[in-house]
Write a protein that binds this DNA or RNA. Structure first.
Length: 345
DNA sequence: TATACGTGGCG
DNA sequence: TCGCCAAGTAT
């Protein structure tokens, strides 16, 4: 009987998707694709990859870009630290490594935003180095194939799955092996309804034999969701509106939004929250529920009319038809699309 | 080690 | 509607 890696690679040759980052060995583009695909589906990331490659064809182009430009291209994809870290690392490669992308596992791992998974993916695919990837797909395939019940979000689990993945690795073709395993996870060994009748590992899969597929992988931690109540102040003097860059450590760091006031449950916005002698009046202008991984945001938008806009801190004033120049959270993009205030001319 | 970090699709 | 999931990393 053919061994594990032979089976998955034969399947991969026949069934892999035709993706723009396949069949290349430019470490920069492979790096970009891997970062985009962190916690992100191919369908969602594809357009972003194409945009990035077109706008920044080389790591040097990315290094020379403004952060706002990079974040603007990333707008709508989420997990914006990926873009900030990649930009930071590109500048580091350009300025401190002579523009040469690192060629060892440790060197790649040292880049900001690159962890064990991404370092293994880049070095195995671009350089044919024997490092096994362990991602969500690998956890799912291997936990079912071997019926490993150790929680994948535990230290012990990470250790066990890394060991198992390394034992199966084809040292002659680590890149193809890694991509084949992940592709099976993405196309066949699905979380809810695995297509075991199409799986190249069906003959030897423990979960298929015992019909235990849906019991794996095991996770121990549960996500708890908290509610947040954000009141956005859309300050306008009839022509311009105030935008503010988010510099704090929290969500949407580096993106722009309106000045906002956060309230507790049941608390309402009052005129005291606005306190401007130039205040003409304010009106409710819409309310959105925005679901995030760990929080449920209830956003209320207030159209605040003032005689003239006075800027404070690092606020900037924008013409109402120029919001597209700034990277914004998806929540605000949705609001702007639905609000009459930002209609172009 | 536990938590924060986005968005969109699916059953 | 809601919880889970999707090629993880930083702190």
């Amino acid at each position: 009987m053919a061994d594990f890696s032979t089976l998955i690679q034969a399947w991969f040759r026949q069934n892999q998707r035709n993706l723009p980052w396949r069949g290349i060995n430019d470490p920069y583009k492979i790096w970009l694709s891997e970062v985009i695909l962190q916690q992100t589906r191919v369908d969602q990331g594809m357009a972003y990859y194409l945009k990035f490659v077109e706008t920044f064809p080389t790591i040097k182009d990315l290094a020379n870009a403004d952060e706002d430009h990079v974040l603007n291209l990333w707008q709508g994809l989420g997990y914006y630290s990926r873009a900030r870290n990649m930009h930071f690392s590109a500048k580091m490669v350009a300025n401190e490594l002579g523009g040469v992308f690192p060629s060892t596992y440790k060197g790649v791992l040292s880049l900001k935003g690159v962890g064990e998974y991404t370092a293994a993916a880049i070095t195995s695919i671009a350089y044919n180095l024997p490092h096994a990837v362990v991602d969500g797909n690998v956890y799912r395939v291997l936990s079912r194939y071997l019926e490993i019940g150790t929680p994948i979000d535990s230290t012990q689990g990470k250790k066990e799955f890394s060991l198992a993945a390394a034992e199966f690795l084809d040292h002659n073709n680590p890149g193809d092996h890694n991509q084949a395993l992940m592709e099976i996870g993405a196309l066949v060994c699905l979380p809810k309804s695995p297509k075991c009748n199409k799986c190249p590992l069906a003959q030897s899969c423990a979960s298929l034999q015992n019909n235990s597929q849906l019991n794996f992988p095991v996770k121990s931690k549960k996500i708890k969701v908290v509610n947040r109540y954000l009141h956005y102040l859309v300050l306008t003097d009839g022509e311009n509106t105030v935008l503010k860059k988010r510099t704090g450590k929290g969500i949407w760091e580096g993106l722009y939004d309106f000045p906002l006031i956060e309230k507790k449950v049941g608390e309402e916005l009052t005129e005291n929250d606005l306190k401007s002698e130039d205040l003409v009046g304010f009106d409710f202008d819409g309310s959105f529920k925005h679901i995030l991984s760990h929080q449920r945001i209830l956003a209320t938008f207030w159209l605040v009319r003032v005689k003239r806009i006075k800027l404070v801190d690092n606020q900037i004033k924008i013409a109402i038809n120029q919001v597209e120049d700034y990277p914004l959270p998806q929540l605000l993009i949705r609001y702007i699309k639905e609000s009459r205030l930002f209609e172009a001319d």
